[in-house]
Design a protein around this nucleic acid. Sequence first.
DNA 1: CTGTCAACATATCTTCGTAATTAATGAAGA
DNA 2: TCTTCATTAATTACGAAGATATGTTGACAG
Lengths: 240, 240
Amino acid sequence: MQQYNARGVHGQTVEVLAQRILDGRMPEGSTLDLTALQSEFDVSLTVLREALRVLAAKGMVDARPKRGTFVRPRANWSLLDADVLRWQFARSPHRPGLFDDLHELRAIVEPGAASLAAARATDTDIEALDAALADMAAAGDDPSAAVAADLAFHRALLAATHNELIQRMEVVIETGLAERDRMVHGTAGADDPVPSHKAVVDAIRRHNPAQAARAMGKLLDQAIEDVARLERTQHEDRQD
Amino acid sequence: MQQYNARGVHGQTVEVLAQRILDGRMPEGSTLDLTALQSEFDVSLTVLREALRVLAAKGMVDARPKRGTFVRPRANWSLLDADVLRWQFARSPHRPGLFDDLHELRAIVEPGAASLAAARATDTDIEALDAALADMAAAGDDPSAAVAADLAFHRALLAATHNELIQRMEVVIETGLAERDRMVHGTAGADDPVPSHKAVVDAIRRHNPAQAARAMGKLLDQAIEDVARLERTQHEDRQD
DNA sequence: CTGTCAACATATCTTCGTAATTAATGAAGA
DNA sequence: TCTTCATTAATTACGAAGATATGTTGACAG
């Protein structure tokens, strides 16, 4: 999933800086003291520069002679970027509501994608969906296999739209799935996911866009309900 | 709109390299000859490195010792990134269907966003929408003012969802609007945009999500119809 | 004879310290 | 008050040295 596989000490530097900006420890508009950061991370200026260049590419910082390197307004950050999403969830206390935002976007995009897929899916596309469905059924109680199959399903669905931009919304879906997986981690009691997913595939197979969108909407409603129920349970646990 | 405001010779280097990759002149998996590029652009290795670091941050290239720097599979490119979208449209013969893909994504996201906005919009949000509507009416036949008002409208709509991730879909909408603007450039005969936009605002003011979504859908249908009609006209012109 | 594993050599990226360039600032002049 | 110009703080660029993953060779076991 991650895109920016920086090797060497670089990756850490980028991630630490990114998280400081994302969680507000380095507020918008604040200027970065390169010399201080250099000694803090014990790296050369070049390393720091390249780390900042990555963040600049994601709209998070800007550097100008005489003014210094500063954090850009939040409105310019590429929040839909795979790395930025991952960095936000990597630190434990991420922004409240971030998961909800993520899910709302999914709730808009995925039914629409299902509708398009129903109109355009080829036999190959439907085979991929069926395969993901089979994997999901075969996964049983193996959590990692279940997540992998779930991911494959949603990826196959996006691919069936034959729209390259919609396909790239997978970064949002992947992050959403990964985060949900982290939350439910090992907690049993989730419903069987196969029926709801199968309903989507059936609608696509019949090339019925409206039905596909509805089925996908239900699937997502169920998913968010699972998480909500889980959060209630955890909340009760915390009151021991 | 652009995020990566690289200064110096850097910006050109990044853009040229990006376009070569995006249009397929540097195919997926091909390795880049850094030495050749260095002499071609007449820049130092550091400059080239930082340019490639930007592309790496956008998932387009990767560098590994002993293997070299190579173009990553297209599936990893951040096609929803503002710069990547801009670079694609910057060169005249961009991928056929790119505009269509863009519009399909808008057709999915914006009605959903309008629906959410209808549920959540505050008085301030609605004032912003009204202001954009007023600007649109006042623009009259000034194309740049009309585009600015249109952009402000769609931005205000996304803001009214109070969902930060959905708001960042503005990069897609902005690019779509900018490209449409480039296409219609100076050609009159477009319908009055105010009524269709006003219908959306009215639905939001009444906090009627379904109606807002429908109105937004119609607005987008009309927009794509305008472009289609324009393309037919241009096609006829070309047959002189 | 064939397949597996480990140590080695090297091509390539990565990092360093220093020099050049840029643009915001304030003062001087018109 | 506006324009011009030197000042200077900060980024940007350079060429060489350093670090590292990869591919290769050889030996050993099956």
